[in-house]
């Protein structure tokens, strides 16, 4: 089986400071990979390098494209990479405001990716947008409301709908539940889990919340100071952490 995404030796430096160093892993179709670590451990840098938002200093990000097979997305041309970003990839930002157009209605937000890949029939676009709002549990009557009138959890769900409408195969998520209160988090996680399973999505989730990866991720990487210190199956890493930092991380979670 070819991996959907094969990351090899990704290194990003900010001057003398290391963003992330020599990270390699394979992600197979339908698999969800969690990346955990404390603030400043390089997990967001790594995610942005993989998603094409940052150019790494070294390494390869090989993606199994629909048309041409395996391609290194770092050396491919910018139009091709941006096309991937609109079709096969999706990026869910921590703050919904970064991923949404706040001045555009919910329907327009969801429809943007469709129009970007050439959809030109208003009725079809609107039907698909309404359908997707339903799938992320936003009432269809809100389709013409702007995201500014939505709650934080709704904005985040809208951002997810906007990203998944073109049927991507790989979703990058940067702290998708950050900044939401726990009950909203739980609903969002439940929704994400359902969508990931139903659509057979592969996902890479960056988070510092171990509960999120426990629920969503099949595999886990623990990062510290820009390096991967431990990797393995989620329950294995969380229940039997080997590295001192992983042990600290797991034991730091409050038990209520």
């Amino acid at each position: 089986m070819t991996p959907l995404l094969s990351v090899q030796g990704i290194t990003k430096r900010y001057g003398a400071h290391i963003g992330c160093a020599d990270v390699s892993f394979d992600l197979y179709p339908g698999e969800v990979m969690g990346i955990v670590g404390e603030s400043g451990s390089g997990k967001s840098t790594l995610l942005n390098c993989m998603a094409g938002h940052l150019v790494p200093d070294a390494g390869q990000v090989v993606f199994d494209t629909r048309t041409d097979g395996s391609r290194d997305t770092i050396t491919m041309s910018e139009p091709e990479r941006r096309m991937l970003g609109r079709t096969d990839w999706a990026f869910v930002h921590q703050h919904a405001r970064d991923g949404l157009r706040m001045g555009v209605s919910a329907g327009g937000n969801v429809g943007e990716r469709l129009m970007a890949v050439g959809e030109r029939h208003y009725g079809d676009i609107r039907d698909k947008a309404t359908d997707w709002l339903g799938r992320v549990e936003i009432d269809a009557s809100r389709v013409d409301d702007r995201p500014t009138t939505f709650s934080g959890g709704m904005q985040q769900r809208l951002q997810i709908a906007r990203n998944l409408v073109t049927g991507p195969r790989l979703v990058f998520m940067d702290e998708p539940t950050g900044g939401l209160d726990v009950s909203v988090q739980a609903r969002l996680l439940d929704l994400l889990r359902g969508l990931v399973r139903d659509m057979g999505l592969s996902a890479i989730i960056v988070t510092h919340d171990l509960a999120v990866v426990r629920l969503l991720a099949d595999r886990l990487m623990v990062m510290k100071s820009g390096r991967v210190v431990e990797a393995g199956l989620t329950d294995q890493v969380l229940d039997d952490p080997q590295h001192a930092y992983s042990q600290l991380l797991v034991s730091s979670v409050l038990q209520v």
Partner: peptide, 12 residues
């Protein structure tokens, strides 16, 4: 695609 988002907003 963004230009059509503006027209979409108009119609909606």
């Amino acid at each position: 695609g963004l230009m059509h988002v503006k027209l979409y907003e108009d119609i909606s």
